[in-house]
Design a binder for these strands. Structure first.
Lengths: 365, 365
DNA sequence: CTGAAAGCGCTTACAG
DNA sequence: CTGAAAGCGCTTACAG
């Protein structure tokens, strides 16, 4: 394959001049530029990336890191990009946006803690100019190792208080997150306003920031209203379809007193919950109301359609990219944006009628 | 940041030895290795990729190229990864599989012909060791420019006959495709066996290999059965939801004699067709039967559930990766695999009863 | 077993 | 406006 040396020789100039043409220096006269460009075109010459990077140019590549570490150390429980309704779409959106803005994107998936080193290596080996990290465990200290490299990075869904408190101020970073705690309160209040008191919660994996905040919001709202939270009403689906299936089965088979409503920390688990309940002849929303989180495209097509807290995935991807782009262009601020989730009311939640409510209240006396 | 030179100095050895340790040469005595490794760990040293590549190592990165060029040169009609049910999942699957096998993945999306150069550049700049190309237009000659670079590549959904006939035999490549022509025949036969004769077809963009083959299969089956193909029954949705919506509206509003069944070249268009028909009070499958292609996850959740020709996306991704991996490891064969699509019969197709059939036949006399 | 040296393909400050 | 030279961070054939 051709090198700049070959092009220089053929064009009758030095490598310096070839480089100047490639990099669009202005102090190259038009005829020289033309002469060189003709040779470049003729031989389809393209400067090798590694040479350029070694001599100080940027890679023009950003990393997209998906951290998907389950507590269950079982490959069966692995959460992939494929057929996943959070990681998949947000990664796809970032790829779209970064490409439209002229960046290359490297996607790396971290399945186990031992692989954290691969995340760091991608930065340290200078494969990328900066990166966006999704799904990093709550208060995971790996982030300070990344920070040490002093390359720009964006965290999606991470505890901003913890980070701002503990990180060096010269580290170039940003955070994009959502008001999960507040959203969980809203979801719980919505059910309560529909007459529900016996509410269960299917949680995501608690080492995840959003999952933790959502459960917390639910908990506190229930407490505030003096509603009992039965132990068996806190269900750990860990964002996994199969685990959700097993846990809901357990709930139905082992609990005499079923809840009248269930909040699920994402739509995938909500839809699986509905499917599992249906298997036992339980009707949604007549017998049990369901609320999810995310508003995946299915949510509007399922039967019943799913009431859910809509997450603005595409906006989050856009903002994350914009933040990173700013940092790559030398801006030194710390960037931070937190999005609201919005309630999308659909068919899966039913108002418990006064009559039913009375019956329940009566029963509770 | 540390370089191998720094490590060498601190460890009291030469850069050669540091390099030998990094690359796991066997002729380094354990004590030397240990001494060097300690310094490496202490300073978190990682060899820079560009240096390694420049001196002949592989990038350990594969490219995934999505070619999504619409005939409409309108950004509104752009088909992204995000919310797309073919590109999105297959790219996600390849990312998953490649990562599990230790590769980095660069994803590049080509939206317009002018961007083809970026696809070639990614190879030519040696950012990758090889690549997988999805959605390349039928008989697009760009492929021969890529072939000239002599780096391994895999094509997903491309005309194998055309390629094998025209490409130099020393080019390292593979093709993974599906029997689209045969699948379209099966879909059409299925409708015919259910009594349908007035069948419309919503086509993908015809510069796409699969779209072309599917339309061809439909056409020939209709001809073979001596069924009339009305001009207005061939509808160009071009794989775009919005375009499909407009075209189906046109069909309903301008055509007196609606078909009894519609084949759609993918599920996204099939679901949009159903939605649009419903808007006009047309019932599926009572009034019109629908068949799609792909078997996206929705297909099983929509109402009615969608009869469709299932595409083995994940298997295709696996095979594509495997082929590329073989080529990267020096195997010199040309790899080729074509998958079957399988009919998934669901609720969206209805058997036209003998009585109706008779009425129609009578009417046609 | 190990170091000095050459070389990979670029860019850029320097000198003219 | 342009070239010679140094340097970026690695690896590896060569010599000992």
């Amino acid at each position: 394959m051709m090198s700049s040396k070959d092009i220089a020789k053929i064009a009758g100039v030095s490598r310096s001049t070839v480089s100047r043409v490639i990099n669009n220096y202005k102090n190259v006269p038009p005829e020289t530029r033309k002469k060189v460009m003709e040779v470049i075109e003729k031989y389809n010459y393209r400067p090798q990336m590694s040479g350029r990077v070694l001599s100080g140019k940027k890679t023009n590549t950003i990393g997209i890191f998906v951290v998907s570490i389950s507590p269950e150390n079982d490959s069966f429980y692995k959460l992939n990009l494929f057929n996943n309704n959070y990681f998949g779409p947000i990664v796809d959106a970032i790829i779209d946006i970064a490409n439209a803005n002229g960046y290359y994107t490297i996607v790396k998936i971290i399945y186990k803690k031992e692989d954290y080193s691969k995340l760091i290596d991608t930065f340290a080996e200078k494969r990328i100019d900066g990166g966006i990290i999704i799904g990093l465990n709550r208060k995971e200290n790996i982030i300070f190792d990344i920070a040490k490299i002093l390359m720009p990075f964006i965290l999606i869904h991470y505890d901003e208080n913890y980070l701002f408190k503990n990180i060096n101020s010269d580290v170039p970073f940003g955070i994009v997150s959502t008001f999960d705690y507040e959203a969980a309160i809203e979801a719980t209040d919505y059910l309560i306003s529909h007459g529900h008191k016996k509410i269960a919660f299917v949680s995501g994996r608690l080492n995840n920031y959003s999952a933790y905040e959502r459960l917390k919001g639910f908990f506190e709202t229930m407490k505030k209203n003096n509603f009992e939270i039965k132990k068996e009403y806190i269900i750990f689906g860990n964002y996994l379809i199969y685990k959700t299936h097993m846990e809901i089965k357990k709930l139905i088979e082992q609990t005499k007193d079923l809840p009248t409503a269930i909040i699920c920390a994402n739509d995938d688990m909500a839809l699986e919950t509905i499917n599992t309940l249906k298997t036992y002849g339980i009707k949604i929303p007549e017998d049990i109301s369901i609320i999810g989180f995310d508003d995946i495209p299915f949510a509007n097509l399922s039967s019943p359609t799913l009431t859910t807290m809509k997450m603005p995935l595409y906006n989050m991807a856009e903002t994350s990219f914009q933040f990173l782009d700013n940092l790559l262009k030398g801006k030194t601020n710390h960037f931070f944006k937190k999005f609201n989730l919005t309630l999308a009311p659909r068919e899966s939640v039913k108002k418990i009628s006064w009559k039913n409510k009375f019956a329940i209240d009566f029963f509770l006396l």
